[in-house]
Design a protein around this nucleic acid. Structure first.
Lengths: 234, 234
DNA sequence: CAGTGGTCTAGACCACCGG
DNA sequence: CGGTGGTCTAGACCACTGT
């Protein structure tokens, strides 16, 4: 009279383990049963338990070491994941109308601070662009970008009046490594003028350097309009 | 004379796919071969290909849909992961000496803005703490915390003069959901005084609300010393 | 050196959804 | 409806590392 036994999924196991942590059955630092033991308890294959625990480890909930076993992390070294969207998508995703404007364009020898950041050689030339991004006609983001002409010489011939450098780069360099950092900055006269905010206003900014196969592609400083927030759940 | 054939690992496959994207073999938007096809090409089990592609999808490199197959993402919807450490660990991790100070403590009825954020009832009581965290004797972070006494009544009897609320909460509420957001703020008179920076200085701040099993635990506003950055690679 | 997690395999069933 | 990815299984070998 018994139908087919419901199969235990790795999601079930994750949820069950989280429940045990939540209700205090397993406390921070304590040792969990091994995979074989749990597979027996849940009556499933070890691979299923493995996937559940591997994901919990990736999420920073538990800590696994061969031979030593699996433990609940003392202070849950958790991490928040932030999507890094393209400005256009970000603005249109909020249901606002996107507009882009090129403010200035110049080809120069890379200044020292940039050479250091991107590991460029003395004398290397870069394309320096300043742009503005608008949401519903209001200034949304100031973009100060430097593109390595040694790696992307075609950038010098490209017209950035219509298409922003961000979108051009995405389709030109399909895949890349990046380092991004967030901080606060005070609006200088130029930025205050362009964003239409008071000088010295506190603004949220992101700086990102990008590499492709070990070579520097671009460096960009993005300064957001007053009051901008970046949010994540975790 | 052939020894045991080298087994193809899921890491090999990930690397190979990334190489194909990097060198332009597969362009953004293009359709990749199915799992069975790839398993045959790499001469491995489908599960191995599946794990490689599943991880690439999690990382935002590719997009998978049943029946439709797997494609390279148009604009690589990538995400940066930031570790959210406890202040003490953050400071000691930089090799600096950590010191904590409680600035003020009061039990009050939750103000309206907090009630809304944490979905509290009118009249609910909260513990309001203001603390300072020092690195090598220099003010590092200002902490403005509110703890829900309805959920954690024992907080009212706890002495936060020695141990910071953050560490107390971590060991009291082992697991929780959180929403965190980053922005820039101007130093008001109080914060400028405590952090020792000019009034109106642009400061980086994080705000976090935390829930345990659906009930609000705490809300905290963390304001960092001038020049603070949060960095990630991706 | 022995126990634990890490990974691969070959096969199977199934859910979803595009054509 | 049929092809694609999603997942589970039972078994195996291996790498790492604490004891």
């Amino acid at each position: 009279m018994k139908g087919r036994r419901m199969v235990v999924t790795y999601r079930d196991i994750k949820a069950d383990i989280l429940r045990h942590i939540s209700d205090g059955t397993w406390k921070p630092g304590s040792l969990l049963p091994g995979e074989i033991e749990l597979a027996a308890r849940y009556d499933c294959a070890r691979a299923t338990v493995n996937r559940a625990m591997r994901e919990l480890a990736e999420e920073g909930i538990i800590e696994r070491k061969r031979k030593a076993g699996t433990r609940i992390r003392k202070s849950p070294l958790r991490e928040a994941r932030f999507e890094i969207p393209i400005v256009r998508a970000e603005i249109e995703g909020r249901g606002a109308k996107y507009r882009y404007a090129l403010v200035s364009r110049e080809v120069v020898v890379a200044p020292d601070w940039l050479r250091v950041r991107l590991s460029l050689e003395p004398g290397d030339r870069v394309l320096h662009l300043v742009c503005l991004h608008f949401a519903d006609g209001m200034p949304y983001q100031y973009e100060d970008r430097w593109i390595n002409l040694g790696l992307l010489p075609q950038a010098e011939e490209t017209d950035f009046a219509a298409t922003g450098p961000n979108e051009w780069l995405v389709e030109t360099v399909p895949f890349s490594d990046a380092e991004i950092s967030f901080s606060a900055t005070e609006a200088d006269a130029v930025i205050a003028g362009l964003l239409g905010c008071p000088e010295e206003a506190a603004l949220f900014q992101a700086e990102r350097s990008t590499w492709w196969q070990g070579r520097a592609v671009t460096h960009v400083r993005l300064v957001f309009q007053r009051g901008h927030r970046m949010t994540a759940r975790y």
